[in-house]
Design a protein around this nucleic acid. Structure first.
Length: 203
DNA sequence: GTACAGATTGAG
DNA sequence: TCAATCTGTACT
């Protein structure tokens, strides 16, 4: 199988295109000498400064969201609800607050492993990273990844395994949890996922 | 300084 | 249905 690391020119294209094409790509995280790998199956696009749901709405800049303005391919990670990290990848050119939120991964593990144990609870393997907070836990990500460059980093990067996702397999729907942005923006179908994939988040 | 809501999750 | 728990932002 041909695999290659995704380079800068993938991320600097229009955000909606990047959000769709990230489906079927792989996140590789090097952790304690091992690789943790997940296939991206669900994303959301946030397109500031126009997008009211974007943290960079009207070019708003704070200490927390400055990574969203970096040139495409950088990690914008932050804490929500005091407990969960959200993994975003910046897109397009430097100075534009645009990014793609990674919402769910299909874990790639040895073929026989179908279940997993967390705190004595048996969980299906495809439910380990089926949500934006859960996938950060799966990949062992924290604030130290803030601003990390996926094109150059030695501990996390993206790979293209030349897997084609057909257009018919991509579902577009409303983004989750952003009703505060008002009907117009909340109704934009900027959430994308692979139809029928068992690791897509609920709702 | 204080109040409050948020791109969520898992337990009851 | 609700609590857990932190931070930016908008108020006083």
């Amino acid at each position: 199988m041909m695999t290659k690391r995704i380079r800068r020119n993938f991320f600097t294209r229009p955000t909606l295109k990047v959000a769709k094409e990230l489906l079927g790509k792989f996140i590789v995280r090097k952790y304690k000498g091992k690789k943790i790998i997940g296939k991206i199956v669900e994303t959301e696009a946030y397109i500031g400064p126009e997008d009211r749901a974007s943290h960079g709405y009207q070019m708003k800049k704070t200490e927390r969201n400055r990574a969203e303005y970096l040139i495409g391919g950088h990690i914008y990670i932050y804490l929500v609800y005091g407990m969960y990290y959200q993994l975003n990848i910046s897109t397009e050119k430097e100075g534009l607050p645009r990014c793609v939120l990674i919402r769910a991964l299909e874990p790639i593990v040895n073929n026989k492993l179908k279940f997993f144990k967390i705190n004595d609870k048996v969980i299906k393997i495809n439910q380990i990273a089926n949500g934006p907070g859960k996938l950060c836990r799966y990949l062992k990500l924290d604030k130290s990844f803030y601003g990390e460059d996926l094109v150059k980093s030695k501990r996390i990067w993206l790979e293209d395994w030349a897997i084609k996702i057909k257009k018919a397999e991509i579902v577009a729907s409303k983004r989750i949890g952003i009703d505060y942005a008002g009907k117009y923006w909340a109704n934009k179908k900027w959430r994308f996922y692979i139809d029928g994939n068992p690791s897509v988040s609920k709702q």
